[in-house]
């Protein structure tokens, strides 16, 4: 008997792997990246490149300081880099995008214990940092004025095609709805996410916009709604683990996006709201984990 391994049960494993999953998530970002490149060209490319570099270097920097093993490359740096860049304004300087993701990865991800442990979504934190760094006007100009003009007039006919194909301006990843949907479709097809959280999110965006009498289609179509639906609400690390926690979190996110957009007058404020909601996500896990339903105790 040449080699017999002596380990603890169970001795079967599914063929899934974290690396494969990360690969699929990265793959699903590609359509959006394409959309950004088409809309903004070289500028977008530079921002995306610098973001990815910033994320990777941030990770390396903190891990070296804390004397931890480097786990590059497993796709996480690329994922965070790309996703952060999709939230940046196209007027952001590439160096600003580098430092934003560098700091975000260093603080929000590594200081909390590395991959899988961050409480606040590194991409949202990168966005917050980018707002500090950007000397220019914080968000892309014309798109948002139009948004609010539209939002105020509830029966304005919206040219949906414009939104779908990316004729509207906004942050890097927010211009083409179709690409976000394509990314989401890849995720759903590969069963990386359950369809319920994005659906509940969009549903609550709809509901909230009806509640405060703004144009629901505007809410759904513009800005980062679609991006958030598939990438921020469903993110593994920052959303609750429990099934019902995920649903509740999605509904809250939808609500907060609409509320914050209109309380502040800028659609990008929604991302700050999501950042704060990230802090709430563990609460669902805690409550649901301690709770045992009637059936379980019956």
């Amino acid at each position: 008997m040449s080699q017999i391994l002596f380990v603890s049960p169970p001795h079967l494993r599914a063929s899934d792997s974290a690396f494969k999953r990360m690969l699929i998530w990265n793959l699903s970002l590609l359509p959006i990246a394409l959309g950004a490149l088409t809309a903004f060209g070289l500028r977008a490319f530079l921002i995306m490149l610098m973001s990815v570099a910033g994320s990777a270097l941030g990770e390396i920097f903190v891990r070296s300081m804390l004397k931890r093993k480097w786990v590059l490359p497993d796709g996480k740096a690329m994922y965070i880099g790309l996703l952060s860049s999709f939230l940046f304004s196209p007027y952001l300087s590439p160096w600003a995008s580098f430092w934003s993701t560098f700091l975000a990865t260093a603080v929000a991800q590594e200081c909390f214990g590395g991959k899988g442990a961050s409480i606040f979504h590194p991409a949202l934190v990168a966005f917050a940092f980018s707002q500090i760094f950007s000397s220019a006007s914080p968000v892309a100009p014309s798109g948002n004025a139009f948004l609010f003009q539209m939002a105020e007039q509830t029966d304005l006919h919206i040219n949906v095609r414009d939104f779908l194909w990316g004729a509207r301006s906004g942050a890097l990843g927010e211009t083409s709805l179709l690409m976000s949907l394509a990314g989401g479709a890849i995720l759903l097809n590969k069963r990386m996410i359950s369809p319920w959280p994005p659906l509940l999110f969009l549903g609550s965006v709809l509901g909230a916009s009806l509640l405060i009498h703004v144009n629901p289609s505007a809410e759904l179509l513009v800005g980062s709604t679609m991006l958030a639906a598939f990438y921020i609400v469903t993110d593994y690390e920052t959303s609750p683990i429990h099934r019902y926690g995920k649903y509740a979190y999605a509904v809250l996110c939808g609500f907060s996006i609409v509320m914050l957009r209109h309380a502040s007058g800028q659609p990008e404020a929604a991302l700050y709201g999501l950042l704060i909601l990230n802090g709430f996500a563990p609460l669902f896990d805690e409550w649901l984990g301690r709770l045992r339903t009637q059936k379980q105790h019956a």
Binding site: V107, A128, A269, Y272, I276
Partner: peptide
């Protein structure tokens, strides 16, 4: 650090 990040979010909001 967590509070710092929260503050960041709030800073952004307060600017707005």
């Amino acid at each position: 650090i967590s509070t710092g990040l929260l503050a960041l979010g709030l800073l952004g909001l307060s600017r707005i």
